[in-house]
Design a protein around this nucleic acid. Structure first.
Length: 593
RNA sequence: GCCGGCGUAGCUCAAUGGUAGAGCAACCGCCUUGUAAGCGGUAGGUUAUGAGUUCGAUUCUCAUCGUCGGCUCCA
């Protein structure tokens, strides 16, 4: 059973779903002309969509929440009744959204949660207190099972009816509900913690990156500190790729319209691409993907079956149109650098190639401190290109690799792109949140379109398998996730500044400079805080900058040519020889801790 | 793009229909310091941009831009 199904059957799910009804009751009481839409339980809580005569304010939420507590205390009983479509339509005659749902239930279509239903399903209503809702349940038996001190309304947001931007905009109230007050407290703490770790906030505090009105939305400026982190990531990435049989390639930021016609992007991806640029009467497009260029490199010469597999890797910067409302810090931008690669292999190499790719992917992610993975295998959709045998072989290879490497996974049957099946890997961060990073996708479309081939043992042309993969996803997104995972306190190997040397008084600065010079020559990123401030102030500033090592130098240290090490954790290791610290730091950096 | 909120100094935030103030940061000076803020001073703003209402707008209205929470989509 998937996590989702398990949740749907849990007590907590019923509590949240019921809380949504109680909330609707309170809202309808407050706005008798309200039209109600849908109100499901979701991860960590619930929501309900309403069509209301005016916009809700935070004050309204408080009133509604207060009223919910009163209603809960009235021990409202949830009673279910099945009825005919005609009866239901009469009952909800003033509720257009409900009528639409009833139509759907009657004829098949989609249910309350948007899942397709093949055939007419029984129509049920639930009544609690003065509120009756079209609903298939399940609910708690009565509202005393909802803990009035474990619910909280969180925010209001606009939401289209059925998620369709051509339909009316409704007001959605999000709430959370738990079994105990402590669980609620814990959840609110997690929300607060997430706010503190927000990469946009930390990005500003640590001067990592910014965006700028004049530059444009969704375009990231990497400041020196962020740039250093990125440089370290990329250096490691390059080394690992070269060591693992990749060829590094570099390709342009734009290409002629004909290239994108060949690749098919102008057919199926045009909405995500920017308007063409006119160059001497020819149309060029900024690249939304790197594949056509890698395919063009592949095509630049003949390939023998002996040359395969070939792996072209590139940190390729792409541009995709994103609607202004969806942009979000580093996580959703308009220009970003994918850590992209395309593998070309023979059919007989394909399973090993997938094994390699998944294994390499996990090793890379582990190097950055991620240890919890969840994979999603998406298989053949109804509308697709390629031969069914190819799909089956590819899906089998993907699934076998997941099993062999013991990655927990769920299958999204029919969820693949039209051009091939894929594995998406999500990592869990320090707060237990999931982020999608890696993706390993087969592509049965572009090899055809570009008509790529290799010469087999038989002297004939054969079509290779092509796999598209990104491990970190994009540098921007990955950086955002790293910032939140570490709350800005990067491991030493990634820290923009690794060592802060803190002379206690002016007379120690000269020795501090000497030590700094030695460390810099050994490859450490070091600064001397020579300001005339108190040592305490310098420590405080270094802590706020999240510098992993602080070295205090006073009379005693200078006398013995030592440094007193204080770690970012607050741990004070006392004085040690200048060389001893260097060895320690270099070791920890090499170990990526 | 759409619905709603927000936009005041580098940062975090005050204030008012009569042209703005604090803390931190910056700069200058004093202090020469022992594991998370020593003290004093100086400077810094066309209150996002544009238009309108008004004797007067930073405050009210509208538009634009940006941003935040969502819808949709995804790296």
């Amino acid at each position: 059973m998937s996590q989702k199904e398990e949740y749907a059957q849990s007590e907590l799910f019923r509590i949240r779903h019921s809380a949504a009804h109680i909330m609707a009751e309170a809202v309808v009481e407050m706005f008798p002309t309200a039209k109600v839409a849908i109100g499901p339980a979701i991860a960590d809580g619930f929501y309900y969509d309403f069509d209301l005569p005016r916009s809700l304010t935070p004050d309204d939420l408080e009133l509604i929440e207060k009223r919910m507590r009163e209603l809960i205390k009235q021990k409202e009983v949830f009673t279910m009744r099945e009825l005919s479509a005609a009866e239901a339509k009469e009952l909800f005659k003033d509720q257009p959204y409900k009528l639409e749902l009833i139509e759907g239930l009657e004829h098949g279509g989609t249910d309350e949660e948007g899942n397709p239903t093949d055939q007419p399903v029984p129509i049920t209503i639930y009544t609690s207190g003065n509120f009756t809702d079209l609903c298939r349940g399940p609910h708690v038996e009565n509202s005393s099972q909802i803990n009035p001190h474990a619910i909280k309304l969180l925010n209001v947001a606009g939401a289209y009816w059925r998620g369709d931007e051509n339909r009316p905009m409704l007001q959605r109230i999000y709430g959370t509900a738990w079994q105990s007050k402590d669980e609620l407290k814990d959840y609110l703490w997690r929300l607060e913690e997430a706010r503190k770790r927000d990469h946009r906030k930390i990005g500003k505090e640590l001067d990592l990156f910014s965006t700028n009105d004049e530059v444009g939305q969704g375009l990231i400026l990497w400041h020196p500190n962020g740039g250093m982190v990125r440089y370290q990531i990329e250096k490691f990435w390059d080394e690992q790729h070269v060591r693992n049989g990749y060829d590094l390639v570099y390709t342009p930021h734009m290409g002629k319209a004909s290239l994108w016609e060949t690749s098919g992007h102008l057919g199926f991806y045009k909405d995500d691409m920017y308007s063409p640029i006119d160059v001497e009467g020819q149309e060029y497009y900024l690249k939304p993907m790197n594949c056509p260029f890698h395919l063009s490199i592949y095509k630049s010469q003949l390939h023998s079956y002996r040359d395969l597999p070939l792996r072209y890797a590139e940190k390729g910067t792409v541009y995709r149109y994103e609607r202004s409302g969806v942009l979000h810090g580093l996580l959703r931008v308009r220009g970003f650098t994918q850590d992209d690669a395309h593998h070309f292999c023979r059919p007989d190499q394909m399973p090993d190639e997938i094994d390699f790719t998944l294994d390499f992917s996990l090793k890379m992610l582990r190097a950055f401190g991620f240890t919890n993975f969840q994979a999603y295998l998406s298989t053949m959709p109804e509308k697709c290109v390629g031969e069914p045998e190819q799909w089956q072989a590819a899906e089998a290879a993907l699934e076998d690799s997941l099993k062999r490497l013991e990655v927990p996974y769920e299958v999204d049957a029919g969820g693949g792109a039209f051009y091939g099946p894929k594995i998406d890997i999500k990592v869990k961060d320090a707060l237990g949140r999931e982020w999608q990073l890696s993706t390993i996708q087969f592509d049965f479309n572009e090899p055809e379109r570009f008509d790529i081939s290799y010469i087999g043992e038989d002297g004939q042309q054969h079509r290779p398998y092509m796999v598209h993969r990104a491990l970190l996803g994009s540098m921007e997104r990955f950086f955002g996730v790293l910032i939140e995972h570490y709350a800005g306190a990067f491991p030493a190997w990634l820290s923009p500044m690794q060592v802060a040397i803190i002379p206690i008084a002016d007379r120690h600065v000269e020795f501090a400079d000497e030590v700094a010079k030695q460390y810099k020559e050994a490859g450490l990123r070091v600064k001397v805080d020579a300001r005339s401030d108190r040592m305490n102030a310098k420590i405080r500033d270094a802590q706020k900058e999240k510098i992993p090592y602080m070295l205090v130098i006073g009379d005693r240290e200078m006398e013995d040519r030592q440094v007193a090490l204080r770690r970012r954790s607050g741990e004070n290791l006392g004085a040690m020889d200048v060389d001893a610290f260097l060895a320690l730091a270099l070791q920890e950096i090499a170990d990526k801790i």
